[in-house]
Design a protein around this nucleic acid. Structure first.
Lengths: 401, 401
DNA sequence: CTGGATTGTTACGCGAAACAACAAACTCCC
DNA sequence: GGGAGTTTGTTGTTTCGCGTAACAATCCAG
């Protein structure tokens, strides 16, 4: 309930709001900003001046106006100058990216490895090494303003410690701290759950742009989720919100790695699909194996079709439950679930019609991820930029000091 | 993203925050307000002066201070002067109350009737009649600043139309509008789902005070729910959020009135319990019938015990799912679920241990409603007061005009 | 090239909250 | 009971963000 010296708060808030417009919406004229933010021309000028002076945005004359009147200056993010590091760690893959203000991926490196080959701790060195390499290539006037990592596991609110990650060999790992130390930039590294961050990404720059209530479902080895409720990421009391993978949809169903039975993850996860299709342990694994099943089903393979149908039924039931509970405007399927949904949309829709209540489902939109594999990385970048948008000047003052 | 003339916004916000403190926390000294709101002494004085002048609060010298220094003036809500009307409509009961600022129930009338005897439209006249009667009894200087109704059905966001209410014979009923017209006070009447409003009530003045992430489960004829996520009621895209009653927990389970099978409501609702206990249609109905089963189980009735155990298992599974998805700090059982939970807490806890993930459940608290039957009414009053807290002076200026 | 339209820029005023100084009222202690 | 110390109410002043208004700059249309 604190307010602080309120005038500064206003300024901070308005600076952040303006920067957020530019960051998420891309180049925009001062005239549009005045109308969208409901502030006065002169105020917008003062704000942009501050941000320009801080080196966060640049103002340029537009090429063509097309309308009468003096052309309005276009405010664009200093994408090449101001950037963050984004990390993404999955059980069989990691990626590092340098992401500029505005969401541009300036540099990117990734690597795949055998599933579960590395423990989370071991990766911190490699990740920070790549980041330092990228940093060395940058020009002198560039400035790193943050860093964040997405991990496929539970991240405790507050200290950002990775609590569980059965697919990642992690338990009580202070990953952010470790990464921050190794980066040596004096910056704290935020950590978030991968599906949560992918949800954030789709919400800010994906199919879910402008949608205030959405559910993002991510299929990887397991099933993760991220929920945007009322425009805000649902974190829960300890930060484990959105973990829909262990919602029980079939009490008499398959055993799940978590000890329970019939979890969404157990019925819809990669293993369930491959086993049903009689392809588990048959060499292929991961996204490619799932794709192969969907393609086989498309070609008329009965076993694959039935496996996909079965999985689609459970997925549909899970989605129906979530729709009943949340009444979202959109459900987004990402990761491996993109393929599964595309291959079993009919089953999903049938189950929705059966189990979801009419008012909740009548305006519902089902979509697949727009950002694809980059979603997690983009989400991590958003997380890293978050404190910049919360207090633009403070962050840059510290960075330039 | 609009900001408006920001100085007024600040003032409005601060006035609202101060009034909210007094409204929810009761009488409080100006000194405490300065520290809790983080504002300056002189600012607090200016704010309380405005609110006192508007007749919303009163300032008094405290009886005893106990501490050194000049005693700080105590700010208390004008509970007797400023009030709202709160309505609560269930399938077999309705209640009308006059609730003063601060949450005091000043006057109350209720009535029970045979389940489903009335359609929602028919009740508007009765309800407004009671309200008008209450209003006639008030002194001349009292002022009604709002009204709201809780209904056991889905309420569409925006226009407040009751979309569904299978237990209430309602379909596309513009209940708020109708009630507002009949009240004749020139006030809009907000409408909300009963479980949602009960959740709001427990969050603001019940066991969930200060808890930012909680789930309230309400058992009536069906099972309703309200979710507070990050301190805000989860409404969803169209306002049907929190409808947990039709989450499918047992796909092979009992048929539900909604057309689906194995919904939480179908497995845990009143009918499921009474049927399992062999008491369905045996004269008793409603809360009393449920209580009878729990009491019989307490006395050692095997059939009742098994019925309760079975229902408790499904309840526990439902709660486990919600805990996995939301990671709430607290789950509150209200209405008939209070009795059911108290009679089957062991089953609920067992299912939680089986199906809820450790990080989500380790800090979880299970509680029963503190406000009991008044929860819905109190929640409706909160809803009615909401716009007063959002802009105290504007509301009172209009009321006194 | 002129007029209308739109925006950038600057000087000024308003208002909300912080700050500082003083007065008021209490407790404690002798 | 009275003085010292403490805490708060009250008032005048200052600060700072934003809105307003007036003017300059720059576009398009004719």
């Amino acid at each position: 309930m604190r307010a602080g010296p309120s005038q500064e708060d206003i300024r901070r808030h308005n600076l952040g709001a303006l920067l957020r417009h530019v960051h998420l919406g891309g180049p925009i004229s001062r005239a549009e900003l005045t109308s969208k933010m409901g502030l006065n021309r002169s105020t917008i000028m003062a704000l942009t001046s501050d941000l320009t002076a801080a080196g966060l945005v640049r103002e340029e004359l537009p090429r063509e106006t097309g309308r009468a009147g003096r052309p309005s200056l276009v405010v664009r993010p200093e994408s090449a100058r101001v950037y963050v590091f984004a990390f993404d760690v999955s059980p069989d893959r990691f990626a590092v990216a340098r992401v500029g203000l505005g969401g541009v991926i300036l540099d990117r490196r990734e690597s795949t490895y055998e599933r579960g080959a590395f423990a989370l701790e071991e990766l911190a060195g490699t990740l920070s090494g790549f980041a330092r390499q990228m940093r060395r290539k940058t020009r002198a006037d560039t400035v790193c303003v943050g860093a964040a990592a997405a991990v496929s596991g539970g991240v405790r609110k507050g200290d950002g410690v990775v609590r569980f990650g059965p697919n990642l060999k992690a338990d009580e790992v202070p990953f952010g701290e470790e990464l921050g130390r190794r980066l040596g930039l004096g910056l704290p590294v935020s950590v978030g759950n991968d599906a949560n961050l992918a949800a954030l990404a789709e919400h800010s720059r994906g199919v879910g742009a402008g949608v205030r209530d959405l559910i993002y479902l991510h299929g990887d080895v397991g099933i993760g989720g991220g929920i945007i409720a009322g425009g805000h990421l649902l974190g829960g009391h300890n930060g484990y919100g959105g973990e829909v993978g262990h919602m029980v949809v079939n009490p008499d169903g398959r055993a799940c790695g978590c000890g329970s039975h019939g979890c969404l993850e157990a019925e819809v996860g990669e293993r369930a699909l491959l086993e049903s299709a009689g392809r588990f342990g048959a060499g292929q694994q991961g996204r490619d194996a799932v794709r192969a099943v969907v393609e086989a089903a498309d070609r008329g393979d009965i076993v694959a079709q039935e496996a996909l149908s079965r999985v689609g039924d459970w997925l549909g039931l899970g989605v129906a439950n979530l729709v009943n509970i949340f009444n979202p405007e959109m459900v987004i399927f990402g990761g491996m679930l993109r393929e599964i949904y595309l291959g079993s949309a009919a089953q999903v829709r049938t189950q929705l019609a059966l189990h979801a209540m009419a008012p909740q489902r009548e305006k519902l939109r089902l979509r697949t991820s727009a950002l694809g594999d980059a979603a997690t990385l983009v989400g991590a970048a958003e997380l890293a930029f978050a404190h910049v948008l919360a207090d633009p000047l403070e962050v840059l003052a510290r960075a330039n000091a």
